[in-house]
Design a binder for these strands. Sequence first.
DNA 1: AACACATTAGACCGATCGGTCAAGTCCACC
DNA 2: GGTGGACTTGACCGATCGGTCTAATGTGTT
Lengths: 205, 205
Amino acid sequence: MTDTADLAETGTRDRILSAARNLLHREGYSAVGVAEICREAGVVKGSFYHFFPSKADLLSEVLRRNWRGANGALETLLESPGPARDRIARFFQIVVANARRMHREDGVIYGCNIGVLASELGPSLSEAEEELRGIFNQWRRHFAALIRAGQKDGSVSESCDPDATAAALLASIQGMSVLGRTLNDPDMIEAVANSALAQVPAGNH
Amino acid sequence: MTDTADLAETGTRDRILSAARNLLHREGYSAVGVAEICREAGVVKGSFYHFFPSKADLLSEVLRRNWRGANGALETLLESPGPARDRIARFFQIVVANARRMHREDGVIYGCNIGVLASELGPSLSEAEEELRGIFNQWRRHFAALIRAGQKDGSVSESCDPDATAAALLASIQGMSVLGRTLNDPDMIEAVANSALAQVPAGNH
DNA sequence: AACACATTAGACCGATCGGTCAAGTCCACC
DNA sequence: GGTGGACTTGACCGATCGGTCTAATGTGTT
């Protein structure tokens, strides 16, 4: 994982958030109890409820934080130079590299720390559902913007429907997460990433 | 859903299994308790543990049953006539039609009744993990067989790597599940399905 | 009628769930 | 040095968790 064992005495709230991000990524929402999060964070129950009104509120914040990471990478790519289609490819490379890192460090691929929770919480009630919808919509919009940029710079064919293709790319990413989590094979994830790019028809450039 | 409200007096074991398939599909494994399954099935706890040694064993059987459905469709398609690439497309149409049915009947898309559980249970312990790995591997093999058939009948390009592309198709399916569950938009699912087919390069035929 | 056996019934178990609360510690500011 | 508010502490709450167990209730066989 990314940031366990921050032995440095950081703020209590941050320690809770960090522990929760790790645990929810690995085991999901329902399978992790507040007590377990507190244990991992080295914090007592009262402190938890001092900073977070409920477990569900913590979830919202975890999702927001997780999205900040992916969103940052996407926005960086949006402002980067070079053919936009290559920048899309680079995002997939980042995802693959992440899977490889998890596999190397922990022996296990945990998948997307957003998608895993999105899939578990489902379409039911859950206040977090709105958060998740917003995240996926932004994600789609980023991909669509990259595709449109590609159509401008000639790296993506004009025949490509940006919105549909953006959704398809996001679906491939989320599918890589599910397959990675279950089959735990980084090479296969890379193969999927390469195939996924074929959904973006190359331009004439 | 498919088979709730079988008021007909079917066997107790089947009623439990049916209720569990519905509930686990909608709400996942951890979020559903044995008591809830019993209530839905109209059965008392003792009966549950008479037929199933544990909740985890029930999960295995649910997964096996769920896979029987998808597997059946795939094997039918494998033996069907016509260009194999079209048969792959037909599988995606079936998935889309299923999403539309859920959305029409329940107002909500619950996604893949295998993938949802695969994503939740993750790479951790869980005896069911082996079950899930087997299912996904068979699924990949079916797709790969269709692609190879397509290369024989000319509907799929020889440049296509059947194993990699099969994994990519499965990833797209699972991504559709995650996105469908969260965004609940059947039209978008259909758009993704159409884009996903571009991962299978058409042949010369 | 008596027995065996499969199934039903639901009270019960310890553990854990998310969440509350009153008391205590700490530190900044007056 | 006293006061107030932020934070910590952990005991405690009722509900639910997965699972067990004993007793009752068929039901078919002899």
